[in-house]
Nucleic acid binder design. Structure first.
Lengths: 344, 344
DNA sequence: CGAAACACGGTAAACGTTTACAGCAATGCG
DNA sequence: CGCATTGCTGTAAACGTTTACCGTGTTTCG
């Protein structure tokens, strides 16, 4: 773990100047003899370029940060899984920030762009505050936001269309004959929470169903919280016949509680989740879910950022990824999805 | 996105030398008046320290790399989720490397330590080759390996005890009366594959059951692959009454195939997975699984690395994390579905 | 054959910090 | 009052690269 060789060590060994060493290492035109000597010396000494010194001079770190609330959330994970290879292929390293949904942490990340340890940032803010917007306006490196920001924010923006997503789910449930469709949402001051709440109301309108406040319950985007919210909802509105859940974790919580309450899914209550995570396919019963294209959003964000890193200044772009509904057992016809004969 | 202010800009603005600016910024003793001027100037200009220049001088990047095959794998994810906050609390950033289980990529990561863009590395190699060992011996930064390495490898090492883990599972299945217990394993040239294969054989011996090659099927550590392997196994040995799966994804594949084949779980075939991931609790039926303490291993690795970064040279340490069995429906009594009070 | 063009390679400055060292003013003390 | 001590501050070197610029030796061509 000694203090590895530097360009100077090599220069001495090869009997040339450090400039020549640098040139050889960067593939700039050099006499064959010099090249040979330098490469030989580098090889013998096991030389590896110091990335920090390089970055200082070149003002490029070849690192990109990805900041989201929690890697454990499968929706973010899906993004990460797409972002990583795209960056890697372009020669960038990925610096991961978990902000635990704490606004101050997100602001911190934006602020730390000034430290210039990354060339750019992809961020999925849970809520967008005034502080976010100020920081974004003066950010010291290119930023791509996944989630909605106001029109005039000077950053690239990738959005899901949860409005259409909720609409797809409600159309589906309506087509199944459900009329008392509840919404189990996350906090309304979060970007997804607000969007999904509004979309729900709108979709009901389009279907000619009344908006009934009783049918809406706010919890948080986690399984246990979702379960609690569903329990409260069942208590208040026993005749609910379908649940639109604002994400898959909430939906899993819903399944837990419905099972404990002796309601059959989907016969008594149909359930639709959102994000179409791995968990949806693995759950019991398997969970219908609206895919908001997490993976596609991740990929789009990475590509936007790389494009900007490569070509510099240009108009901010907006990419909207279309949703689609994946129907599984939790809202299929009873048992239709699964072979019969399996009790347990 | 302009060229932010530097220490020099501030020095001019405050009418002091760059040394004084640096001292103030680092909290070294300074006359109050100077301090005031510097802080005022820094504030007005929105100064942020350049991390790259800082690292070059201090030879510390405050970054740590974590390299594993695939973030999508819940076992690695569990590690990541523990590692991240530990590092963050200690002031380190996390650089993520996905190696896609390609040996060359792993070697690459080890080699790139020479670039000194991180202060240390936590790696989960899928297989440990000669090349790994050579690189580890000459690594230019501290490394912690999660998984087994030979005794004399000069790195900190965190191990799971899959031997005991498999033993727990087989004892459990044996206690349920199962006698034809199959093993669905991943490739034998991987660290976990080899360990689990050997452990299976040993545990059978301890239980007085014969080792029957027919009952062992090798696939890969993924759901679809696992399914294929199970299908082959069922075909060859129709009277198998329990499946020990080398990880949870394989076990999910097993559930898929068993369901399609009309075998009831757990009545006809009991299934036990390994790693106790989120998926196990969410699956249908919920999956018994041997927890190898992924989260604990992640935490231990992070702590070992931080310790070494803080205190420098010392003996390599070995930490072994004990496994435990989590019994759920797939090997419980028929229909014994417990509502999981689990968050996620 | 001499001048111009060219191909290489060395010197030194720069990137933005930290820090050893020296300078200098103010203070303490004999 | 002079000297040592103390407390700050400035100068400059260093971290390991890249690169502009210039000098040298060789080639080319009139």
């Amino acid at each position: 773990m000694g203090e590895g060789p530097t360009i100077t060590t090599i220069a001495e060994r090869a009997g040339v100047s450090i400039a020549s060493v640098s040139r050889v290492l960067n593939g700039l035109p050099t006499r064959q003899e010099t090249e040979r000597k330098v490469l030989a010396a580098a090889e013998e000494l096991g030389y590896v370029r110091n990335a920090v010194a390089r970055s200082l001079k070149s003002r490029r770190t070849h690192q990109v940060a990805f900041a989201m609330a929690d890697v454990g959330n499968p929706a973010y994970l899906a993004m990460l899984r797409e972002i990583q290879p795209v960056l890697k292929a372009a020669g960038y390293r990925l610096v991961l920030h978990s902000t635990d949904a704490v606004v101050a942490d997100e602001i911190d990340v934006l602020h730390s762009l000034g430290e210039r340890y990354v060339d750019g940032l992809i961020m999925v803010p849970l809520r967008v505050t005034e502080a976010h917007l100020t920081m974004l306006a003066t950010a010291r490196a290119p930023v791509v936001i996944i989630g909605s920001v106001p029109e005039d924010t000077p950053v690239d923006n990738v959005r899901a269309d949860s409005r259409t997503g909720v609409r797809l789910a409600l159309d589906h449930l309506h087509a199944l004959g459900r009329r008392r469709i509840g919404l189990v949402n996350g906090p309304l001051d979060t970007v997804p929470g607000a969007a999904r709440g509004a979309a729900y109301r709108e979709a009901l309108g389009a279907l000619g169903l009344p908006y009934d406040e009783e049918l809406v319950e706010i919890g948080d985007f986690y399984r246990a919280e979702g379960g609690r919210a569903v329990a409260a909802l069942l208590d208040r509105v026993p005749d609910v016949d379908a649940l639109m859940c604002a994400n898959d974790l909430i939906a899993l919580g819903a399944l837990d509680v419905l099972r404990a309450a002796g309601r059959r899914v989907p016969q008594d209550v149909a359930v639709v989740g959102m994000d179409d995570t791995d968990l949806a396919a693995a759950s019991w019963p398997s969970l219908s879910s609206v895919s908001l294209g997490s993976a596609e959003r991740g990929r789009a964000a990475a590509e936007l950022l790389l494009d900007r890193l490569q070509y510099g200044e240009r108009e901010p772009r907006l990419v909207t990824v279309p949703p689609h509904l994946v129907v599984r057992a939790s809202s299929g016809r009873a048992g239709a999805e699964e072979p019969e004969g399996n009790t347990s």
